Simulated scan of single mutants.
Amino acid sequence: MNKWLKTILFLMASVFLTRMIPFSSLFRNLDTMIHEFAHALMTLVLSGKVLRIELYADHSGVTYSSMLTPGRSILVSLAGYIGASLFAWLLFYLYRKGRHIWGLGLMTAVALVSLLLYVRGEFGMLWLTGFIALNVVIMIFGAKISKYYYLLLAFITLEESVVSAMYIGWASLTRPSQAGDAANLAQQTFLPALFWGTLFALFALWCARGALTLFFRKEGTANAPRSRRFDRA
């Protein structure tokens, strides 16, 4: 089967299955947190100022920043979807390397920094507090389930990175002025929102393909003799 088709079909099945898990909707804000944190991080890298981040119950979010030139604003707008897709890929890389606790620690650290420095608003602060507390409990007392908890977070993050990018791609076609980051980029460049929305969607699918390749390779080689295991860097 074509690898792209396999990626899409597996993602569709994953979206359906994870939505059957009780309270899984609460974890879908993880991708939003990473998306907005990527905007904030790029702002800081470019010497801008992050004013605040807001996370909402409908899994949307917004980052407010200042002191950015038009050219730098382009990079900040690009960082959200691209950063979220790369982070999802990173979670599967860490899983393949047997470092899922590192991944949990990284998610917790991002949540903690976001809570202490940037996120304002009742829902966002409450969600981050609960997420941090749950992660700490899992890392300390949940050794037997930490791997499965991590995989749940990894798959939900991967799904949301693709679904949100696909949504913005569709929005850039049907209502380009309301297409979020794609609309922002269209205002700052000579390229239409449809170009940016399509770029985000294709990049998310490419990262998803890489992430799932790592996942299946991990499962397929888990019991192989150490001396005969070959990994591609």
Rank of each mutant, 00 (worst) to 15 (best):
W170N: 09
W170H: 07
A171N: 13
A171L: 10
A171T: 15
A171I: 15
A171S: 12
A171W: 08
S172F: 01
S172N: 00
S172I: 01
S172C: 02
S172D: 03
S172A: 06
L173M: 05
L173K: 01
L173R: 05
T174F: 12
R175Q: 15
R175M: 14
R175Y: 11
R175L: 14
R175C: 11
R175H: 14
R175V: 14
P176S: 10
P176E: 13
P176Y: 09
P176F: 06
P176H: 10
S177R: 15
S177Q: 15
S177W: 12
S177D: 13
Q178S: 13
Q178F: 06
Q178C: 05
Q178M: 09
A179G: 10
A179M: 08
A179V: 09
A179E: 03
A179K: 04
A179Y: 05
G180Y: 11
G180K: 06
G180D: 11
D181T: 01
D181Q: 01
D181N: 00
A182F: 05
A182N: 01
A183G: 10
A183W: 02
A183Y: 08
A183V: 02
N184V: 00
N184L: 05
L185I: 03
L185S: 04
L185Q: 03
L185F: 07
A186H: 03
A186P: 02
A186S: 04
Q187D: 15
Q187P: 07
Q187V: 09
Q187C: 10
Q187T: 10
Q188Y: 06
Q188F: 14
T189F: 02
T189R: 01
T189L: 02
F190A: 13
F190S: 13
F190M: 13
F190I: 13
L191Y: 15
L191M: 11
L191I: 08
L191R: 05
L191C: 08
P192G: 09
P192R: 10
P192H: 12
P192W: 14
A193T: 11
A193K: 07
A193N: 12
A193R: 04
A193V: 15
L194T: 11
F195K: 05
F195L: 07
F195Y: 06
W196M: 02
W196S: 04
W196G: 01
W196D: 00
G197I: 02
G197A: 00
G197C: 00
G197Y: 02
T198M: 04
T198H: 04
L199R: 08
F200S: 11
F200A: 08
F200V: 08
F200T: 13
F200Q: 08
F200W: 07
A201M: 09
A201C: 05
A201W: 06
A201L: 09
A201Y: 03
A201P: 06
